[in-house]
Simulated scan of single mutants.
Amino acid sequence: MAANTMAAALAASLPAPQAAPAPATPSYEAIPASMAKVIDTEGEIPIKNIQLDGLVVSKIIKHGRDMASASSSVPAYGLLLGLDLDGTLEVSNCFAMPNSSDEDERTGKAAARYQSAMLRSLKEVQSDDSIVGFYQSTTLGAFFSQTLVDSLAAQRDRLRRGGVVVVHARGNAAFRAFRLTPSFIDAYKRKKFNTQSLIQHRLTFSSILEEVPLVIRTNALMNALIGTFTEATQEPYEDPAGSVIPTLAVPQSSLPPSFSGLDLEPPSYISSNLERIGEGLDDYKTEENNVSYLLRQITRERARADAYVQKRREENAARISAGLAPLPEEDVSRLFKIPAEPSRLDSMLLLGQLDSHAKTLENLASSQLVKTFASRV
C-alpha cells in the first residue's frame, strides 16, 4: 500500500507529458528535367565503363611511386570517390589510406577514423565524398589476394554499385578496373568453396573477377601541360668555332631523352619475377598437400562410418531372423566427427597470382628478345 502511495506521489511530481512534435516533412532538391534521365537515383542502370579523371591518375601514380621508393612491400591502397551517371562510373577524386605492414589494419579502428575524417573534410569543402571503390598498386602484375577479395565483398554490401578496384602496375601507367562476378559473390555469401560449389558456380581463378572498361579523361589544363612537355623548341645551333647560326635550329624537348629502351642488359625485375613464380609454386604445392591431407582424413572417417552402419545393419538382420527386436539406429555424425571439405579459395587465388606473374614474364621476356635480336641485325 505504501509503495503504491509513493509511486503515485512521484508520478504527480513529474511534469505532464507533452505530445511529441510531428516530424517535419523532408524536402528534397528537385532534380532538373535535363538531368532526370541521366542520374540513376534508383540504381537500376548497370555500370558499363569507368572514367578516371586525370587528377586521380596522377595521384595514384605518385602514391605508387612513393611506396616503391620507400622499398615497401605493402601495395599502395586508397579509396575512389565519384558518381555514377548513365552507366558510367565517373571517378573524380581519391585519397590514400594509411600504410601498414599488417593487412588487417585496413579494417581496423584507426583506418576507419582516418577515413571518416577525410570524408568529413571533403564534404566541408564541397568536394565529392561518395565512395565508389578503391585502388591498389601491384608489383610485377600480381594483385590476387584474400584482402582484395574481402574488400570488394565488403563494399559489395555497403555501396549501391558494389564497388570496383582499379589496379595500377608500378613502373608504368597501366590501369585496369575489376569487380567481383555474380557467381563468385553467390559462393562467397554461402562461404562454400568446395568441389561441388566450384562445379555448380563454374568457378576458376579467371572467373573470380571481371574486367570493366576504363577510360581516362583529362581537362584542358592538363592537356596544355602535357603539350608543353612534348612540344619541341627550336634552339640556335652553335658550331665548335663558337659562331651561332640562327638559321640552323635544333629541336629540343622539355622532357629529357630516355635511352632505357636501348639497354640490352636483362632488367633485374625479370629475375625477381622468376623468384616470385618459384615462391608461388612452392606455396601452391604446400596448399595442395594440406588439402590432400584433409581429404584423406575425410575419406578415412567416412569409411569408418560406413563400416559401422553396415555392421549395425548386419546385426539387425541377424536379430530379426532370430526373432529379436532390432537395435535402434544411431546418429553416425555424433559417433564419427567427419570434417568438412576444405575450401579451395586459397588455391584459386594462388593460381591467379601465378597466372599474373607468368603473363608479366611473357611480356618482359618478349620485349627483351626483340631488343636482343634487333641488336644482332
Rank of each mutant, 00 (worst) to 15 (best):
A173W: 09
S207R: 07
Q126V: 11
S121C: 09
V215L: 10
V215M: 11
A232F: 12
S197A: 15
A154M: 13
V212H: 04
L180Q: 01
K123N: 12
L221T: 06
G141K: 08
A169K: 14
F193I: 09
D157L: 14
R120I: 08
A173D: 14
Y135C: 05
Q196C: 08
S116L: 15
L119Y: 04
L180P: 03
T218P: 00
L209C: 01
A224P: 01
F175N: 05
T195S: 15
A142M: 10
V149H: 01
S206A: 15
T139R: 15
V166I: 15
E210H: 05
A232P: 12
I216V: 15
L221E: 09
R158I: 10
S137V: 09
K191Q: 11
V167P: 05
S116G: 10
A117N: 11
F143L: 07
R170Q: 15
G163A: 02
V212Y: 01
Q234V: 04
L122F: 09
S207Q: 12
V132S: 01
A153C: 06
M118D: 02
A220Q: 13
T139K: 15
F143C: 02
A142H: 04
G227R: 12
I226E: 08
Q126L: 11
T218F: 14
S127V: 07
H201I: 00
A142Q: 08
N172D: 15
S207D: 08
L152C: 03
D157P: 03
E210P: 02
D128Y: 04
S183H: 04
R161D: 03
V165L: 14
F178M: 03
L198N: 09
R160C: 06
F175M: 07
R156V: 02
L159S: 03
L152V: 01
A177N: 03
L198R: 06
L119M: 11
T181V: 05
F205S: 12
F193T: 04
R120V: 10
F178T: 00
S121R: 14
L140I: 10
R160N: 06
T139M: 15
Y188F: 14
S207M: 11
T138Q: 10
M118F: 00
R160T: 05
T138D: 09
Q146H: 13
A174S: 14
A187G: 08
E210N: 03
F178K: 03
L180T: 00
R160F: 05
V132D: 00
Y135V: 02
A174K: 15
V149T: 09
P182C: 03
L140C: 06
S127M: 13
A174Y: 07
I199M: 14
K189P: 00
L214D: 03
S151P: 03
L140T: 02
S197I: 07
T230V: 11
R202V: 11
T230H: 06
S151N: 12
A142K: 05
S130H: 09
A224C: 04
D128C: 13
F205V: 06
I185S: 00
S121V: 09
A224R: 10
T138S: 15
A142D: 12
P236K: 01
Q196I: 11
R190C: 05
P236R: 00
T195G: 11
K189H: 07
T138V: 13
Q126R: 13
G162S: 06
I185G: 00
T204I: 12
S183D: 08
H201T: 02
R217C: 10
V167T: 10
Q200W: 05
Y135I: 02
L209F: 14
